[in-house]
Design a protein around this nucleic acid. Sequence first.
DNA 1: TCGGCACCTGCAACGCGTTCTACCCCGCGC
DNA 2: GCGCGGGGTAGAACGCGTTGCAGGTGCCGA
Lengths: 196, 196
Amino acid sequence: MRTTPTAASGRAAETAARKRRLVAAAVALAAEGGYDAVQMRDVAARAEVALGTLYRHYSSKDQLLLAALAQQAAGLRERLVQRPARGETPAARVADVLRRASRALEQQPRVTQAMLTAMSSADASGIPVKHEVDATMRAIIAGAVDHHDEGVADLDDIVRVLCSVWFAELTYWSNGLTEGSSMGDNLARAAELLLP
Amino acid sequence: MRTTPTAASGRAAETAARKRRLVAAAVALAAEGGYDAVQMRDVAARAEVALGTLYRHYSSKDQLLLAALAQQAAGLRERLVQRPARGETPAARVADVLRRASRALEQQPRVTQAMLTAMSSADASGIPVKHEVDATMRAIIAGAVDHHDEGVADLDDIVRVLCSVWFAELTYWSNGLTEGSSMGDNLARAAELLLP
DNA sequence: TCGGCACCTGCAACGCGTTCTACCCCGCGC
DNA sequence: GCGCGGGGTAGAACGCGTTGCAGGTGCCGA
């Protein structure tokens, strides 16, 4: 090899760095003012990139935020792999995981709101990333339910329902229909109902 | 009384008629091309009303579509009151109701998509209407579950979960994450899981 | 060594939601 | 009878997502 594979030189590395800066800029702006504060011109400026370049890598604002969401979801999943859910029963473990996730998301309400807006956007070009995010969320839940390979009955259906409830609860919360931190409790109760 | 209460004369009646025309125009445009096709200038033109008047009555596009959604939801509920769900068990009745509702919504995919987009918008001024829609959806489900006043345990929590699943399933479907008519089946399976 | 092409930049332009301005009209209270 | 205020109208203007265009610059194969 002429250069180390992860070297900072080379064209590809530079564009990869640009993409990273773009997502980081989007998250930073979202943290300040939510979806509306993520303005494409500002994102480009903060990442020190031309507007056209931003659109070359992310074909829309929603795609940009979906990339951030996918990254965030993957990070959450990784953290949960390293510190698995505690609890004897599947219901308790799911409740634990969802409570932790909700707490993390509640810390950054504006970022969460921006990403959820992108997730519920009708933009057809975002479908693949949305599927990816959906798969990650399901994997997180499934990992908590069936942590010890106990062979829970109807696993897929239960995970689907829990994922739906999680998504709906997040949407309600980030749109101001739900107050404070009832998300975690509601999710825990749903888990108890589904996993007796 | 000088005129019949529902007479078409009088200032108030005219503005009420204008509001009705506006919502009708929004639905008509939504039927043709979904959320994007509902353009405020076009809505105003089709309702034969000035743009400023549209904004006097509905402070944003999302508010307009939420008004349409609230109306639609109320209509659905009324129809379900007149033709109640069939079925011996709560699960069967809920499945019946949700299947019927899903079929109705699937007939008008573009209208549904437009309304759902409005429902998941972050527009804070829409919160009251969103709560109203949420209440209607819950009432529909609760009516099906506890139709014979059987006193189902955890009724509120179960209804909350079913409503979340319904919302999430609709969002997934109208954003193209879900194919065809799996909505009704998924909802029925959720009902079976929650109401054994 | 020299095109070529892939990627960037800066910037103008367009569409649509939303707001603002200026004006009109009509029913109600004085 | 008259002024006034709540709606209504027409239309310009603004902001932001998105697109298009006219160059620049550096690696890569001929």
